[in-house]
């Protein structure tokens, strides 16, 4: 490490740590986000208010209704007519309906406007009905890696990828532009400092912040939410380093095409949203149309998402995950190279 680089790093750290907002971004924000995803963001369905309209009112229909109620998930609200039931669904008072016509035929209706939970509710209903067939069909579904199908286990590791991208992409995209805006860039240009020293000096501190974020979120995930970390922590760190090459490279690239900090910030968000949506964080890539799936190939967050979930929940090693590491290495190198070439120290 050259002396100049060392001093550049020192200056960046001094500036970053002196800014109280920055301290919040680095330490509080990741914890806060993890808690939100751990507690609030859940696709598990625990309670479904259900209208019951039983026009047949036979032993059979009453038995089926009871089976639903005894599951503990469906909370019944008896209604006299279909219309009344529909009305309360329109009002949002109920999320499902159990309807029996006069012939005793059953209809189960869920509120499709609730997307994911509608599907889950329908699944529960089907399970209850299947179980009580005569003779009963025994279906024993077992979810590997996440036996209780806790969405927390699924989402919290993914938060790491989100957090690291948000923090490091925004910071690095604004960093160089800020120097241009306040005029220090012009001043640094006339010092004997070399281009690579400037770039490394700028990006390394944000890389360090990114790594701290990874550790903080991992700690919260493991010690607070008891999410099992089945795989190796060093492997997770290696993935994070490769992932940071991508986010910092993209940030620097944004920096070279932006004139003001606001522009850089907006461009960063413009990258973050599609990257998150197409990462498999919430929506499985496998279900996406072919064209979109093609684009996810160039999304580093996609690979990080796989690595995080596989290491946390499956305990996979490099033998299985290496294509993801390789993809991030290639993408990251491409991004950093492009950004460095675009970034001219001389005006």
């Amino acid at each position: 490490m050259t002396n100049r680089l060392k001093f550049m790093l020192k200056k960046e750290l001094l500036q970053t740590l002196r800014d109280p907002r920055m301290r919040i971004v680095i330490l509080i924000m990741p914890v806060f986000q993890t808690l939100i995803f751990g507690y609030a963001v859940t696709t598990d369905v625990k309670k479904v208010d259900t209208a019951v309209v039983d026009l047949a009112n036979t032993t059979e229909t009453r038995t089926i209704t009871d089976q639903f109620i005894s599951s503990g998930i469906f909370i019944p609200a008896y209604k006299a007519s279909y219309d009344e039931a529909w009305y309360s669904m329109d009002q949002g008072e109920i999320q499902a309906m159990i309807l029996f016509n006069r012939q005793g035929q059953m209809q189960f209706v869920t509120d499709g406007s609730r997307g994911l939970s509608a599907g889950v509710t329908a699944g529960y209903a089907a399970a209850i009905l299947t179980r009580n067939q005569h003779p009963p069909i025994t279906v024993e579904a077992r979810a590997w890696y996440n036996p209780l199908l806790e969405s927390r286990n699924f989402y919290v590791p993914g938060v790491i990828a989100m957090m690291v991208m948000v923090v490091t992409l925004i910071l690095s995209s604004m960093a160089v532009v800020r120097e241009v805006e306040i005029g220090t860039m012009e001043q640094i240009m006339v010092t004997p400092m070399k281009r690579w020293e400037f770039i490394v000096g700028k990006l390394l501190p944000f890389g360090a912040i990114g790594m701290v974020n990874v550790l903080v979120v991992t700690a919260v995930a493991v010690f607070w939410f008891n999410i099992p970390l089945q795989g190796s922590l060093p492997l997770l760190m290696l993935g994070s380093v490769l992932y940071l090459m991508n986010t910092l490279g993209a940030g620097l690239l944004i920096s070279t095409v932006s004139r003001t900090q606001q522009q850089a910030m907006l461009s960063a968000f413009f990258v973050i949203f599609p990257a998150s949506l197409l990462s498999g964080f919430a929506f499985p890539i496998a279900n996406m149309p072919k064209v979109i799936r093609f684009f996810t190939i160039f999304n580093p967050m996609r690979y990080m998402m796989t690595i995080l979930r596989d290491i946390f929940l499956k305990g996979n090693g490099l033998d299985i995950l290496w294509p993801n590491y390789l993809a991030m290495l290639l993408l990251g190198t491409a991004l950093l190279t492009t950004a460095t070439l675009r970034f001219k120290k001389t005006g």
């Binding site: 002396n3 100049r4 001093f7 550049m8 020192k10 200056k11 001094l14 500036q15 002196r18 800014d19 120097e179 306040i182 005029g183 220090t184 860039m185 012009e186 001043q187 640094i188 006339v190 010092t191 004997p192 400092m193």
Partner: peptide, 26 residues
């Protein structure tokens, strides 16, 4: 070279700014 708006790091002190430029020039 001192440009129209000499770039100082507003959040660094007088001394730190001077040290930084001194370091850059070796």
């Amino acid at each position: 070279y001192m440009s129209q708006r000499f770039g100082l790091y507003q959040d660094l002190t007088v001394e730190e700014n001077m040290e930084f430029y001194a370091d850059m020039y070796g």
